[in-house]
Design a protein around this nucleic acid. Structure first.
Lengths: 280, 280
DNA sequence: TCAAGTTTGTAGTAAAATTACAACTTTAAC
DNA sequence: GTTAAAGTTGTAATTTTACTACAAACTTGA
């Protein structure tokens, strides 16, 4: 595991002085790898052995070894950690933290996506007679976004915020229709019902949701995303960004499957916006 | 550049003994980063100062610095690059490319955000009598998402997709109201008009848009995001992810400004969902 | 072959990291 | 409250590691 994440995670097990060291390192890891144990001790306002003990607590052989691990964490690839926003953070801190934890979440999500399912879902979507995107709460805007993308493909695509409309529309679904249900937790009752109605009508149900959730179990295909949520904020943040990225992937897969001529079509949709815009 | 590549490339400029060092390092770089200058000198059958000179020849400050560079080169993972999707990409390739370019875009966006403006906008929002979020097309779902977030704060917040509703609502705006207009290009005519109406009513207009665009010029505050768009796809992708992240930042700033008691409020909103969900 | 230049190693020095131990806190029990 | 035990932290000494200065040994070309 990335040592920066490890520090964040193990913060509670640290002693007072060790926490000081952790703070200084997390605040400026780039400086840390270029400092000696003495300067780092000074910056953290602790003694040199404390820094050394801090390093060992993280299962490194000592300070130089720790610096090596830190350097590797900082190397391009996985530079970002899911850093939680703190009460006392100023604008600069929370802005950077949110960007970084969003990137970190995407990185984790990427590793959890099942490519085969993506491929099969893209297949389904290209062959669908009708596509519907439904979500509620925070996932409603994701469904909304999906509408905006797939609508450009000149495919019959639907999106409703209203659960009654979602229900009525699903009642009329049939074989060949694909219904994409979006829910981070997969425990939204009314969406589970929609899934059941759809399957009773032999429509295909794709869930962008948690694998073993009540909703997940009702779906023909589940695209699950493991995303660490900052539960302190009591708001869905990273999860819906990951969902949106997944929508982008499905849309991209769709256009690639449809081939080159189809891309001209997209270009035309984009150009149709010209009149509603000021020219460059 | 990767220091391992650098060694291979600069091999010709090395002296006989330095080449020996290069060989040993290239043959087993993992061992090299965990060795002291003495052991490495021994393995290469040269003296310690030779190893040191070798390090300096590669523009490093010395042996420890060289090890740091080497460690970074060895760190696993590819950097976040904006890799464009290619016609012939399979599901695995385009999935990874989209995740990576989204992360790369966020990284670039992060560097372009003006923290001072973020801070001032958060200020405005916390003091606003009414907050409106308007966007069209792909930005509509971003505005939709903003509604979902700010609505939890128990603040009078509005969101319309319909330009007539947007217009009517803005007509009634007054001092102390904040209208957030979202548009990637900043060239959507009807949003520019909304901005003009709002300012005529002394409401404050915040644009999440391009700085020097027609819309940007009509705003009191502009939060601009430099995001590289994959224009090949003819679809907004990374831009709206960056916009959403910015919404997260504003929402977070808002809650932090409001303090601890307010967080309990958010918790209550979240708990109110319980009945609409299946329990764990 | 010899002188100028380069390369290399030896020995000493400086810096950095680690260890051992003592002083100081904290915690919990009485 | 007092006190003993456990845990934490810092000081000082020690060891390890890296670097510098300089001299010896090669190379090169006239």
């Amino acid at each position: 595991m990335n040592i920066l994440e490890k520090i964040t995670q193990a913060k509670d097990t640290f002693s007072k002085s060790e926490k000081k060291v952790a703070e200084v390192i997390l605040a400026n890891p780039q400086t840390a790898i270029h400092s000696s144990i003495a300067t780092l001790a000074n910056m953290s306002d602790v003694s040199e052995p404390t820094v050394n003990r801090f390093c060992r607590r993280l299962n490194t052989k000592g300070f130089p070894d720790f610096k090596l691990h830190l350097a590797q964490s900082l190397a391009n690839g996985t530079p970002y950690v899911n850093r939680h926003v703190d009460e006392n953070d100023g604008p600069e801190e929370y802005t950077n933290k949110i960007f970084e934890s969003t990137m970190a979440a995407l990185d984790i999500a990427r590793q959890s996506v099942d490519i085969n399912t993506v491929n099969r879902v893209v297949d389904l979507l290209t062959q669908a007679k009708h596509i519907s995107f439904f979500g509620l709460g925070a996932s409603a805007s994701v469904a909304h976004d999906a509408l905006n993308k797939f609508f450009r493909f000149n495919v019959p695509v639907m999106y409703f915020e209203d659960i009654v409309m979602q229900r009525m529309s699903t009642m009329n679904s049939q074989v060949g229709d694909v219904i994409v249900l979006i829910s981070h937790t997969g425990r939204t009752k009314s969406l589970v019902e929609i899934a059941q109605i759809a399957r009773a009508n032999d429509a295909t149900v794709v869930g962008i949701t948690a694998k073993n959730s009540p909703l997940g179990k009702e779906c023909n295909y589940v695209l699950s995303l493991d995303v660490p949520e900052d539960t302190d904020m009591y708001m869905p943040m990273a999860s819906r960004i990951a969902q949106l990225t997944l929508i982008d992937i499905l849309a991209t897969g769709f256009t690639l499957r449809r081939g080159n001529k189809f891309r001209d079509n997209l270009k035309r949709v984009k150009e149709s916006l010209k009149d509603s815009r000021f020219s460059l």
